[in-house]
Design a protein around this nucleic acid. Sequence first.
DNA 1: TTGTATGCGTTATCAT
DNA 2: ATGATAACGCATACAA
Lengths: 333, 333
Amino acid sequence: MKKANPAPTMKDVAKEAGVALGTVSKVVNGLPVGDAYRIRVEAAIEKLDYQVNSYAQGLKANKTYTVAVLIPNSYTPFFSHLIYQLNMALLKRRYRMLLCCTDYAPNTEQEYINMARQNKVDGIIGLTYDPNLVVDEDIPFVTIDRYLGPNIPCVASDNFAGGQLAAEKLADLGCRSVAFLRVGSSLTNEPNKRRAGFENGCLARHLNYTMKILEDGESFDEFEIFLRSHLHDGRLDFDGLFCVTDRLAYFIIEMLERMGLRVPEDVQVIGFDGVRNFGDCDYACSTIVQPVSEIAELCVQLLLQDDSSMKPPLVCLPVRYAYGGTTRENSRQ
Amino acid sequence: MKKANPAPTMKDVAKEAGVALGTVSKVVNGLPVGDAYRIRVEAAIEKLDYQVNSYAQGLKANKTYTVAVLIPNSYTPFFSHLIYQLNMALLKRRYRMLLCCTDYAPNTEQEYINMARQNKVDGIIGLTYDPNLVVDEDIPFVTIDRYLGPNIPCVASDNFAGGQLAAEKLADLGCRSVAFLRVGSSLTNEPNKRRAGFENGCLARHLNYTMKILEDGESFDEFEIFLRSHLHDGRLDFDGLFCVTDRLAYFIIEMLERMGLRVPEDVQVIGFDGVRNFGDCDYACSTIVQPVSEIAELCVQLLLQDDSSMKPPLVCLPVRYAYGGTTRENSRQ
DNA sequence: TTGTATGCGTTATCAT
DNA sequence: ATGATAACGCATACAA
């Protein structure tokens, strides 16, 4: 509230302790200093409640211990967990996190990147959607789920393996004829591989499969039209569905119930992401779980490691299946 | 990646444009400068891709356009929306957000406050749980949901009115005998007023009411024991339940279904918070919705306004009821 | 080992 | 109106 007395500086501490400025600096940074001096300086620091000014530090060292995280928003379950885990991974290394929600807006993404540059952050972790994003070569950058170029490490789940795993699970659970449902396909990114993986898995397991892929902007109603076209005498042609996200699975399940079909008795559904109700309760549906914590940890590692070491262009982390009530439990459950 | 050439500085721009340092500064800050000079400086800035160093700025101005947000985590639905709205409210004013997840740990909360101080943030917005939190008087601070003292503005939903509204709604929807369920009551905070408000509403509407309040650490199983003790011949003594959060409502609803009771046919349930499935789909249950966006906006306003203006100690923002499938729709729905 | 002096990039106060 | 210079708080190379 009152801004009366400015925060104490090293100079104040030095005066208080009766030592030189440099000595205080050394004590603060843990450099060797005579015990007698150290004691006095520490007492002065305590007395004045001195705190180093990290802006002055940053100016000097050209290092700020701050990382910017660019992400569309913080309330989509996958994003919200990612943010949390990134925060933890950064905190562990004494780094601070500047959170930037972009709302999927390309210009906001670019604006934040510029802001981050002039803010002299030590690096940027971005889950972005702008296809024409310009990222400087001179600031460490790691992307999630979207490959931006050979010099920019990209971390993602093993989406291909996840699609494959979904197909295998459905086969294991007794499905014979399945479908893949997906929305928004215009942007090239890692999650797109879910389809290919699923297709691969279906072929390997000799599952009949169909795809229904909506273009950007098409309404979810298209799925209902699609499903109804495969409904004969109250029975669906499919006994298994793989939805590209848990969120889509949620809509599809509601749809199926409106159509008088029971999940999982009539048709089993598997989603993708590993979304939990209320963030930490049970899984919203049976799902392929993304290793969020590992993704976050790896992003931070890659971002902060010496430039000397090799930076892999793309790392895919293993996913796993989790039961969430929309598949038929079998013995392996 | 490569840190070869250090970022260009004002000096570089001055040299490039063949003008003095101060002139560049003026151009950058929009101060009056001769047109001929301005053109040349702007060209040089463009050419060198110059960006002001906000750390040097911060050092000089003792102002950083950065606000720290302290919150337990980013994945609990209410928190995740709060973070998003705070980010938007700050962005609108060209402020940056330093996100600090505390995991409900008192020492982490205190650590972050210290970190924020030495980081010279312009203010702190905190949703904290440490009953003994020490917050300096010399840095602007606004708290959410928890009153910390007369000099520290607290922003919250009108929890009392929310409890009252829940009671009124249940009465309107035909309930005669209701119960309030709550967990964790040791900490004094604003949400505690939900109980009192509910009680008030029940009295006003002549509803029979019962309370079941769990202590910290008690298992949710206690609720099942409680409910079963009020179950006679498959009928529950209550036809309406008010749960202190949507999350609790979610558990209770599952519990009721296990007990063979239908929601909302046999018993109607209202929660609190306004949680939506997958962050932005339908409401998880009928609920009292917190005005998250308004809370965020007000926090930022109070935090950044001149110290001269009056800071109210506690502001309670209006809540509203939303239908979410766990109450019986009536004509007013 | 301790003290002194310089510079990091900006802004602001001076003369010019 | 423009250019030189000091100061912000800290770290460090260097001198003592």
